[in-house]
Design a binder for these strands. Structure first.
Length: 312
RNA sequence: GCCUUGGUAGCUCAGUCGGUAGAGCAGAGGACUGAAAAUCCUCGUGUCGGCAGUUCGAUUCUGUCCUAAGGCA
């Protein structure tokens, strides 16, 4: 008997948070975040994290569980989310997984089987050093020597993956190209996947507005506070959209105005990339947020969920 | 009114010593299996402001008109 799960995904700024909270209220359930940036404490404004007021007393899991300097990865997400899903089901409720991180959600639903080799900071730094000295081609050639299949698939410039492939081979004796599990096309959970979308130009307009609002709400102060705490600007969380640009502006490499535009642009690009993940998930039930009010959306979604799970 | 400098892809501009043009950005599509809000790949025909002239041929030269900015009155 598979555990039940409701998923809400969609591009950034489409309105996932709002729907997830309303739905959680009406189903008296709990929310699990499927978002790689909400994990971090202190990263609130730039991540559009729902504040405690907005959370409306609904239990939110996997938000604010990491210190800013902590590292995180998909496998941890997968394991943690699975636990929450299990626990909430055990309590007789249907958990709501809401978030936009394609890899995280897809790997959870489809049970990606990752290589066991852990990330090794030192080894990565070593390869980056090597690439700086002898070029990326050189590192790519190293991969071709040990795992030609992976090398053929990876572009020389897709340096992160080249590094990972080498790491997997040298640190763990595995190959990134080795066949993983073939999840029989069936999802891990008894799940109803809701995809929210709206017309692209309108989505972009919302993104632009939201970025302006982040600045008005004190994004710059948030970043300053993080830096003042001694947080290294190179840490994972600081690579998030909105943070790396503000840091650059504070360091003087670009104007704050320019940073604001960069953030809008990156967010738009990001939304587009999210959408390409979702296109590979044929089991998503799409709802056009454009053509209905929040009430109608909730009603429509509730009805479809009731049909699926036999809830009220 | 006169002078100067512009008018080339949605935007900013480059360029053609005359043989119908190309970058960045924007935008679009894609990849992705322990960093994923990360990382990476692919995609550029537009009356070269209008009209006329010179020419085998003009976006490129000449004239004229329109238009923008600046200067002089």
């Amino acid at each position: 008997m598979k555990e039940k799960l409701i998923v809400i995904l969609g591009p950034t700024a489409v309105g996932k948070t709002d729907l997830s909270i309303k739905l959680a209220q009406s189903l008296q359930s709990e929310i699990i975040s499927g978002d790689s940036m909400l994990l971090y404490r202190g990263f609130d404004i730039g991540t559009a994290k729902p504040g405690t007021g907005e959370q409306a007393g609904i239990m939110h899991h996997m938000i604010d569980i990491l210190e800013p300097e902590e590292e995180f990865s998909v496998t941890r997400f997968k394991a943690m989310a699975a636990e929450h899903i299990k626990a909430i089901n055990a309590a007789g409720k249907i958990p709501i997984l809401a978030g936009g991180t394609g890899l995280y959600i897809k790997s959870l639903l489809e049970d990606y089987c990752f290589n066991a080799t852990k990330g090794d900071e030192q080894y990565r730094a070593q390869l980056e050093q090597l690439a700086a000295e002898r070029g990326r081609e050189h590192v790519h050639t190293m991969l071709a020597a040990v795992d030609p299949e992976a090398a053929a698939r990876l572009h020389v410039n897709d340096f992160r993956r080249v590094i990972r492939a080498l790491e997997v081979y040298h640190m763990g004796g595995e190959k990134i190209s080795q066949e993983k599990n073939a999840p029989a096309g069936e999802l891990v959970y008894n799940t109803y996947v809701i995809g929210l979308n709206r017309e692209r130009t309108h989505l972009y307009a919302r993104i632009n507005e939201r970025v302006d609002k982040m600045f008005a709400d004190g994004l710059v102060e948030e970043v300053k506070a993080l830096l003042a705490r001694g947080l290294d600007r190179s840490c994972q969380a600081m690579q998030g959209i909105g943070y790396k640009e503000v840091v650059a502006a504070l360091e003087g490499t670009m104007t704050m105005e320019r940073a604001r535009e960069c953030i809008k642009q990156s967010t738009r690009h990001f939304a587009k990339r999210q959408l390409t993940w979702y296109r590979k998930m044929p089991y998503i039930h799409w709802y056009d947020v454009e053509t209905c009010t929040p009430q109608d959306l909730l009603a429509a979604v509730s009805k479809d969920i009731a049909g699926k799970f036999g809830t009220k």
